[in-house]
Design a binder for these strands. Structure first.
Lengths: 104, 104
DNA sequence: CTCATACATTACTTGTTGCTAATATAATAA
DNA sequence: TTATTATATTAGCAACAAGTAATGTATGAG
């Protein structure tokens, strides 16, 4: 029966919200394997450019992703290993062979 | 590089959304220890009766919680062990000694 | 039967999230 | 320089989530 401050719950909740979205989760799954650029993520997920960009930005601001510019492309990777772990935990539960989402 | 159907991502997302809320996560943490009735959960979380009831109902409909009536009280427990696991995974990340939230 | 307690449900309002469309910027190519 | 490709940003709107307040229902006490 431990006590944890509300603040911790709030932090955890924030983390969960960040990945509790189909597109964002799909992206995270894809990035578990290797860094990818926006184009590749667009193709893999079927998302619209603007939309995808917004979600990537959101995750970057939260420290979940990091990005690196190579020429005119921007590559994204998972920056916070905690989230890789979280996704793995999810994968175990929902789908042992989770990752590499194709649109539809 | 496995492929998973959109459906699985959708399911996982639904699961995440279900616990990505301060009050719901707090309740889940409390219920990791033992079943509790609504009154007890109200005291432990500081939530309003109606509000708590709605969240409990939501989680019950999603199969996360189950409830049992004893006299005029209703006891809730975690029905789906997957969610207990998820919360544990979260706990590892955010707070090694997570659980037993007191209001404020 | 009446009252009190424990919980659920409904309706309403508000705040947040997510999408699209349009526009902006940066890099490379010609 | 101009055009093209890759990505980001902004604005506006539509959908959804969450909280409060009020009301409903069931159980047990007296």
């Amino acid at each position: 029966m431990q006590e944890i401050p509300k603040e911790k719950v709030s932090e955890a909740t924030q983390g969960l919200r960040a990945i509790a979205h189909e597109l964002r989760l799909s992206v995270l799954c894809l990035l578990l394997n290797e860094p990818m650029c926006v184009q590749e993520l667009m193709e893999a997920t079927g998302a619209a450019q603007s939309n995808l960009s917004q979600h990537l930005s959101k995750m970057r601001l939260l420290g979940i992703l990091a990005n690196e510019k190579r020429g005119q492309q921007v590559f994204y990777r998972i920056a916070n290993p905690d989230f890789a772990e979280l996704v793995h935990a999810l994968r175990k539960i929902y789908c042992p062979e989770m990752c590499g989402i194709k649109n539809k």
